[in-house]
Amino acid sequence: MSLHVESGPSTRAPVPPSRRHGRPGPGRVFLSWLDLKAAPYLLISPYYLLFLLFGIFPLGFTLWYSLYDYDLAGTVEWTGLGNYTALLADSAFWNAVVNTLGMFVIATVPQILLALLLANALNKRIRGRLFVRLGVLLPLVTSVVAVAVVFTQLYGRDWGLFNWILGSVGVDPVDWKAERLPSWLAISTMIDWRWTGYNAIIFLAAMQTIPKDLYEAAAIDGASRRRQFWQITIPMLRPTMIFVVLNSTIGGLTLFAEPTTFYGGNVHGGSNSQFQTVSMFIVEQGFREFDYGYAAGAAWLLFLMILIGSLINFLLIRRIGGRK
């Protein structure tokens, strides 16, 4: 829906013919100004008020807290940047950062490639197109926790399906929760299961806006299907790609539900924090060890991390298909 400033006859009274100078009175001018200039802001204000209340205010409040040594059930003392210097020297924090980035890369790169291929396939004339297109969105409808619970069972060390399959081809069972890389892989598959279809549908929508004549011209020039995909489809998808990648960056860096459920709801993320993400680290510090200030500081570092991550990705993606 787009907002239209143009108002219908019912809201803007036609200016009545003025007997004296042909000019409306000052009250009318104000009303008309209000209608034209203020009304749009008024109409969009609910969102911004809510954003102010639930977005900006907590952000500022967290920043304020992060400057205190704030023990939930103890003392509150000003520490300035003490929490930040401690965090930057905290190996547990860096472990969480590495885990988060690692899982982000393992999950997002294949996910976006797969989504692209899927969208390309769905863009062709195939039987039951609507059905198939809806089908790829289905995983998104299931709750994150349900997905995580099922996958956690599949990845069970002793009785899981994946280890049974590995065993049947002679591979030793993998302890998916104890070893770092396997745990990242397991969690990444949960994320991809849920989000690949969503991204594919967004890519598909964008693909359908690409003018057909570009492909026709390329075909006449003798470009193969594959060449058309890389030289026309991908560059034309650039704005969409930026959206999808930024979205995945934000989602990936704030990862919480899947790894938490994977360890039975414990935010420690594995016995040795093998898959503890920054979000889980924040919850552990704030709500398990009651160190509010420290958790607030970590939350701000995560915020900065997302800003930097988004910027890097934005710059990288903008280069797709050459400079224009």
Binding site: D175, K177, A178, R180, H268, G270, S271, N272, R288, F290
Partner: peptide
Amino acid sequence: AQVKNAVESVVSALDDGSV
């Protein structure tokens, strides 16, 4: 409670081989 939590994770970790 907090220290018990932290210690038990390590005691589990030495068993599952991650430490």
